[in-house]
Nucleic acid binder design. Structure first.
Lengths: 250, 250
DNA sequence: CAGTGGTCTAGACCACTGC
DNA sequence: CAGTGGTCTAGACCACTGG
């Protein structure tokens, strides 16, 4: 008999990571504070460099810390943008010439860049949704406070928007939804699918994501009052930058 | 002149990881397929064990692969549950004696375990929402196909539910929402906040999450027709196991 | 029991940061 | 230029898996 080690001590690097995590979550270490570096951990705990790195990697992969080359590892901040699900797409928004995005940023500075518009073939799923493969594609990236926070790709049935401002960079006041309205296909109903996963490398690059930050994927379909799908919008959000809000009745 | 190395070759471990990722995303490697192990990568690329591990760690942290001790590293599968935002909480669901959860599982086997009910103090945010600190707390874990997929903690104002079945494990047909109705506080409106981040260790343990799997956090407030908040439900979902769907009008 | 991943040591060179 | 993190080598021992 003797020992009853139900939980055999966790490995060193875990214990170190646990200690640092506690310091962060308890508020002892704050927003931009510097964590003890590799050398400090080696000295404090008498471990090899690789082990110290391993401990820091845990926190980095949890999104609680960010490494800065040549400088140190720092506690990470989190100030999300509130994205209102139903309210944001309310007709009142784009009905009077405001772009949808306004509903999000709450007065914060935002920018749109990397706008790419093309005519092409939709992926299989989108084609099935729209009922056609010939589409116009609008890709763009949104930034808030100078930081990229969202990638968005919209698909429109080509025969529906051909020749309209939707096929050009500047869509005019109210954005694409107002233009769809001009064409007699005003969106009346939306369906959003929300997922989350770790980013692919290209997504991590485009959004400048540190390790340990998941992305939220939103796939939104816009329907007309008649039930015709007129847009599929696939968005990739920096999960650390957003809180999504949805209000609905029972 | 001479070199124009705009992108200085990525490190070895990245190139290896990129190659494996391509194989996975292209479908060349499928669901449960075994990836080349540490020894194989060492031999194929003439690298040290640590470097091979590093390459595999990339895929594991991306959630594309799962390591199995003593066996190998395997491609990870993804078969999400569809969780309907608005429809699921529709009155028709709990109005006629069905628990809400039924709306999710779509006929799949699901179980509830680790039910804990207690009377206690709400956290600051919840207290502010409910307008009181004295609450009844219902905690439970949901599993589908034998796999834990969700943790949920509900808070109810103590003075509102005291003595009702809500304070007991078995709430009867229709669940807690039907009981709130019995008490004259039927939920009429819901507000959900959705976030995503990497799990804390305890969340990872409770949901049995492999590395590289984020969690989706849903914080839902139930309001009566009069606008009184009667429940705050904080959920933690395995992000790999869910697709959330929200439908709404413009 | 042979192979696998999990942990750890003790070095090394590099690019980058900040003083 | 001293310190930091980023990458890599070449070993080692362990616990666990599978046939």
């Amino acid at each position: 008999m003797s020992e009853s080690p139900v939980s055999p001590e966790p490995p060193i690097y875990r214990r170190i990571a646990d200690g640092l995590r506690t310091s962060i979550l308890s508020g002892e270490l704050r927003d931009g504070d510097r964590l003890p570096g590799e050398n400090a951990l080696m000295a404090q705990h008498g471990i090899a460099r690789a082990t110290a790195r391993q401990a820091l990697a845990v926190l980095i992969n949890e999104g609680l810390a960010v490494p800065k080359r040549g400088s140190g590892v720092y506690v990470r901040r989190f100030k999300p943008i509130r994205r209102h699900g139903s309210r944001r797409v309310a007709h009142s928004q784009w009905g009077n010439g405001r772009a949808i995005w306004d509903a999000d940023a709450h007065g914060r500075a935002y920018t749109v860049d990397s706008v790419k518009i093309s005519r092409g073939q939709a992926d299989e799923e989108t084609a099935r949704t729209l009922g056609c493969t010939d589409v116009w594609i609008r890709q763009r990236r949104y930034s808030v406070d100078g930081r990229p926070v969202q990638l968005a790709t919209s698909f429109f049935p080509a025969d529906l928007v051909e020749g309209s401002p939707i096929t050009r960079p500047d869509t005019g006041p109210g954005g694409v939804y107002a233009r769809l309205g001009d064409l007699g296909h005003a969106p009346a109903r939306f369906s959003e699918e929300v997922r989350a996963r770790m980013p692919l490398p290209e997504e991590a690059t485009a959004l400048d994501l540190p390790a340990g930050t998941p992305v939220i994927l939103i796939s939104r379909i816009a329907f007309t009052a008649a039930g015709t799908p007129v847009e599929v919008n696939k968005m990739v959000l920096d999960a650390a930058g957003y809180v999504l809000q949805y209000d609905f009745d029972a």
